[in-house]
Design a protein around this nucleic acid. Structure first.
Length: 436
DNA sequence: TCTGGGGTCCTAGGACCC
DNA sequence: TCTGGGGTCCTAGGACCC
């Protein structure tokens, strides 16, 4: 049981190997899809293959890159970069709008492949998952063999590539998958965690961003090894609770539970939000309220889908100069109704907007969820019931015929004015008050 | 460069209660 | 009358992730 070698599937170069094996420890896979959005777009339009591709919007739009193909990355393009910057760096790139529905569908296929390898799969985002592979040796063989099988099955069933990191903790597995990209495997054998992590930049630790990196650097800490060398008091003193967590990470340890399934409802959503950035800043109250209405509807609809009632409603407001404020209010009766959310949001807006100041972004967020709402005072119990019914019916229609098929008309309780939808494509909807 | 959208978690201050 | 300390809830802001 010695000498497993990790091999990149495409180039067959070895990546890492070691001779120690220990099955008494847990084996975690971190599976990360390669350039996921780009790869999915290529499935729908094979002519994109081999070209520099930028997913996220058109080259002159306000917005940022969601994903870039490896060809585009060669020019310095990366995700979160403004689209216009990407266009300057790589003028020949093909710019593609994102298609969330396609990604969701493919993500489900990915999940089903993963599920055939372990009963413990935790999707942590649309293109990324942890698998608890402990105890699967008899079925799938030792970790590297199982990982190679997974690579092949993923490719043959979804036509997508992934990278796989293997370790005794989620942290190590995650760092490995990052180092294995693209389409590689990387295995850190039990006992070698600290050695593997030590030379890495602190920035490679998930959770360490620009700010924490700067702070650590100023303390003379550049590598994970530097961090592991400091005692916990030191880190605690300078970084608080974070410091202690980081000290553990430097040793390759996870904080908290291994897998959500073990401690129950870890994946339950804690907030639901929608926001919108205008293509052109605006101070037009009619347009602003229409946007707030639409965002409120979107949030309410998802609350109903998930059978949540929210107690805390939050408005987010970003001005032209990028200064951003949030203003929240907790209502007495948790709600999932469009008009209750909208009226609270509208109140927050008018109470906090610097009148006349141009707005770049608006957002609506709901949180503090409960399963049921008490019978409330904003609307009487009977009235509330009617709204509930009407809105649930509308949700069903929207599901079948699309977002623009139903609109709340004027004159309903709550008095919404006719919508001036800023997205022309969504405009030609029928106005239809709920029955009764 | 001119900065999306959807989330999670943490901190910190103030109100309020005991 | 002045003064504690702990706990919890609420709100605002910010770091970070994909």
């Amino acid at each position: 049981m010695s000498g497993y070698m990790s091999v990149c599937d495409s180039c067959m170069r070895s990546r890492y190997w070691c001779s120690a094996m220990n099955y008494s420890l847990r084996t975690v896979f971190h599976v990360d899809m390669d350039a996921f959005f780009v790869s999915v777009e290529e499935l729908f339009d094979p002519s994109l293959k081999g070209k520099p591709v930028v997913v996220g919007g058109q080259r002159h739009e306000r917005g940022v890159v969601s994903a870039a193909s490896y060809e585009a990355r060669k020019f310095g393009v990366h995700s979160a970069m403004p689209l216009r910057t990407a266009a300057k760096l790589c003028p020949q790139a093909v710019f593609v709008d994102g298609h969330p529905d396609r990604y969701r569908t493919c993500s489900e296929q990915v999940y089903s492949v993963l599920s055939s390898f372990s009963p413990q799969v935790e999707m942590v985002s649309i293109d990324e998952a942890y698998l608890d592979m402990s105890g699967t040796e008899r079925l799938h063989g030792p970790p590297l063999l199982a990982a190679q099988k997974l690579h092949h099955k993923m490719k043959s069933e979804t036509q997508l590539n992934c990278s796989i990191g293997i370790g005794t903790s989620r942290l190590v597995a995650k760092v490995c998958s990052g180092k294995a990209k693209p389409h590689g495997l990387l295995y850190v054998v039990p006992g070698q965690e600290t050695k593997f992590l030590a030379p890495l930049d602190v920035r490679d630790i998930p959770g360490v961003g620009k700010v924490t990196e700067q702070k650590l650097n100023s303390l003379g800490i550049r590598t994970v090894g530097d961090m592991a060398g400091k005692d916990e008091h030191f880190l605690d003193e300078h970084l608080g609770k974070w410091g202690l967590a980081l000290a553990g990470k430097a040793r390759g340890e996870d904080a908290g539970a291994w897998f959500a399934g073990e401690i129950g409802d870890l994946d339950a959503a804690k907030s639901i939000s929608h926001e919108h950035t205008y293509n052109e800043d605006t101070a037009d109250v009619t347009q602003i309220e229409a946007t707030l209405m639409r965002l409120s509807e979107m949030v309410a609809r998802r609350l109903r889908e998930q059978k949540f009632h929210a107690r805390t409603l939050q408005l987010k407001l970003r001005y032209r100069d990028f200064t951003t404020i949030t203003r929240a209010h907790s209502v007495e009766t948790p709600t999932q109704l469009d008009n209750e959310i909208f009226s609270e949001i509208r109140r927050l807006f008018h109470a906090n907007w610097r009148k006349g100041a141009e707005i770049r972004l608006l957002g609506v967020q709901a949180s503090s969820f409960s399963g049921e709402s008490a019978q409330g005072d904003l609307l009487s119990g009977q009235e509330r019931g009617k709204w509930q019914q009407a809105l649930t019916a509308m949700d069903r229609v929207r599901e079948r015929f699309g977002e623009s098929s139903v609109r709340i008309g004027t004159g309903m309780k709550g008095g919404f004015r006719e919508r001036t939808h800023e997205n022309p494509a969504a405009l030609p909807g029928k106005s239809k008050p709920p029955n009764q």
